[in-house]
Design a protein around this nucleic acid. Structure first.
Lengths: 172, 172
DNA sequence: TCATTGTAGTCAAAGGATTTGACTACTCGC
DNA sequence: GCGAGTAGTCAAATCCTTTGACTACAATGA
């Protein structure tokens, strides 16, 4: 028996409500996509809520791609190539988004003392404010997830995802 | 003590190796991003491998966005609106991608008997072949992840993700 | 020292993806 | 039938990403 398709109700193992097809208006839709797709769905949900939260607090000039790349920046400063690699973008795409973020006042580019070819991308005051704003919603979402799954399972989820980085994140 | 930052080695609780900063060439990079970002990283890895696998087997005219939308189709047929909603796209974007997929022979649009306004998007033979091809790599990735995390933790990951759909997937 | 090789970042053009707003055709409930 | 709502389309504008070529500086080793 495939255990994961069942759950416990009043002491019995019962098919999950989600394991039926739904929307049966002439079309049928199978459920439980593969694991990567499940990750995509949850990520998209979180991202759009964070973006909406930012927009509501005055950071309404951030596009999704800009926000995604800005989320990886730390105050200490980062090189473009490192940023691109960590965000999974080409240097050109990263440079394009960084230029937009610079124009909007979220970041600044300063020379890198250690290497005259390089520049450090630093989070400006406005960028730090945006990061704080984003972190508010992130915390809210994570606590919703923790409440829904329970602390034990939520921690397990996070740890499993963190460890998967070792075999999925080319930046590591 | 924050438990999740520690792991068990030879009976002791030890800081995770990943909880140091890395890339210390003048820049520092903090690690362990938030949970949604961890999901994003793993999903991106899987998606690009699936796309590469498809390209290697003759499905090299699929763009990422096309593949993402095609992955949600089932052979029974689906309406555009349903597809758009399930993929998290606007109707217009979905229609655009579906037209491309139709031109490339992956899907066909047939009238919906139940509603003269609607059409059913059906996966054509080429589309079914592509879906089989994609599923090969999906299975490979899932089994790698299972091997890496162990069956127990992998199942926990999958179940947690599946249950999160209830509060993150507007389509459900 | 100087030539070679490689890395950091930029420019520009092309194409792909997505949104916005307006529109037609059809359905459903009253 | 009539009004409100739904399924899908058209077109324009914008955003995102890739490709290829390029400049400037760094690191290596003869």
């Amino acid at each position: 028996m495939i255990k994961s398709l069942y759950y416990r109700v009043k002491g019995f193992l019962t098919p999950r409500p989600s394991s039926r097809a739904f929307r049966t208006n002439g079309e049928t839709v199978s459920d439980q996509p593969n694991t990567p797709t499940l990750m995509f769905v949850a990520h998209r949900h979180a991202e759009s809520r964070i973006l909406a939260h930012l927009a509501k607090h005055g950071f309404d000039d951030l596009t999704p791609a800009q926000a995604r790349v800005a989320a990886r920046l730390n105050p200490a400063g980062m090189r473009l190539t490192t940023l691109a690699e960590s965000a999974g973008l080409s240097k050109q795409t990263a440079a394009h988004l960084v230029s937009q973020l610079e124009r909007s006042g979220y970041i600044v580019r300063v020379p890198d003392e250690a290497d005259a070819r390089a520049k450090l991308i630093r989070v400006a005051a406005r960028g730090q404010a945006a990061q704080r704003c984003a972190r508010e919603m992130e915390a809210e979402i994570e606590s919703e997830w923790r409440d829904y799954l329970g602390p034990r399972r939520y921690t397990g989820l996070r740890e499993a995802l963190a460890e998967l980085r070792a075999i999925t994140d080319p930046y590591m």
